[in-house]
Design a protein around this nucleic acid. Structure first.
Lengths: 189, 189
DNA sequence: TACTGATACTCAAGAAAATGACTAGTCAGT
DNA sequence: ACTGACTAGTCATTTTCTTGAGTATCAGTA
């Protein structure tokens, strides 16, 4: 029971359809919780069955009918209990790091390429997060917003995401450079 | 097929028993791949069945008999192919971030406590990684080691882990401070 | 006019991971 | 003599995740 709370937390900011939720996960929530759309639909169904979210049908003229969900009182209570309980240790899984761990025992060429791709992707994500953060805080500067803003939760997690992406990008570029240098040295020696 | 390659990569540095592998995962590999001991035993059994690792029994006098595993040629080839294939996007999951996302909609008291615990745990991890890195690079300084060292894979992933833990610690402390400040302001207002 | 891409989902099969309990001997300290 | 921690695993069950496919409509583009 874990995705459950991530969905509830994401849904705190208003009504979302499963589809919209999947988008929100891609941008914001993905900074701390990865999930595929199918999982979200399944989880929403379970949450509704358990009365933690409620949905309402919205018929649209030009688009398929959708169902918008919001968190119920029971859902809020569930989140409250979750927040008070001990957190599990965080965890990461990253293929690319597995490859780097194996570096200098397997061919590094493709790994260097992947590190550079990742760095580029991180650049894009950093820009995206920058835009998102500016939107979230509106006119206020950050300090002011963090102290007086109404809804800072998503802002705080995006800040974490931004820091993560920056570190990740820098690491990828540095490691790619190191591996390239080593290739040169080995070619010479 | 994912844990599989993490195990192979971890096993590149010598022979390990399942138990030792579990330790190695806790310290180094956990920086990019989280797995429980039971999973490792199960994965080792599968890898052996598939001929990607081979084990040998070691009878000990004072300790239970153990089985030490090493990567076979087929295992190395498997890793090689893995390194060349496209990497999946990394993913993170963190309960604590879910709680922060929900912050200012649920009680923040316990969350502040957990942020501080995390920061303290991160401090310990940072120290541990510092020691590990010093061990790995021996006498050489970092630049020199990265360019000429024989085996830099684990060093590189530990560097990533270190950067991650630092960022995480700083973020936790900052967010804890922000949430505390907001509690004060709300108490006054 | 055909094609692409976005919206808005659903279903099912199979792989992978998490959980909890269990065995069994050693060693250090109270 | 007892306790708790460490070594070194195994087993079974359940939960969760991934993969891949399928449905349907509409808007914009070439």
């Amino acid at each position: 029971m874990a995705l459950r709370h991530a969905v509830l937390a994401a849904l705190l900011d208003g009504e979302y359809s499963g589809y919209q939720l999947a988008k929100a996960f891609d941008i914001g929530v993905a900074n701390f919780w990865h999930a595929l759309p199918q999982q979200l639909y399944a989880e929403l169904a379970k949450l509704e069955k358990d009365g933690l979210v409620a949905g309402r049908q919205v018929v649209q003229e030009t688009r398929p009918t959708k169902r918008l969900f919001h968190v119920t009182e029971a859902g809020r209570a569930e989140l409250e209990a979750f927040a008070a309980a001990a957190a599990k240790p965080s965890f990461i899984r990253d293929d690319l790091l597995v490859k780097v761990q194996a570096a200098d025992r397997v061919g590094t060429g493709p790994v260097i390429g992947q590190l550079e791709e990742r760095a580029t992707a991180a650049d894009a994500k950093i820009e995206l997060l920058g835009v998102l953060l500016r939107q979230l805080r509106g006119e206020a500067d950050e300090e002011e917003f963090l102290l007086r803003g109404e809804r800072i939760g998503p802002y705080l997690t995006c800040l974490r995401g931004l820091a993560f992406e920056r570190e990740h990008r820098d690491w990828c570029r540095r490691i790619a450079a190191v591996l390239r240098e080593r290739q040169k040295i080995n070619a010479q020696g």
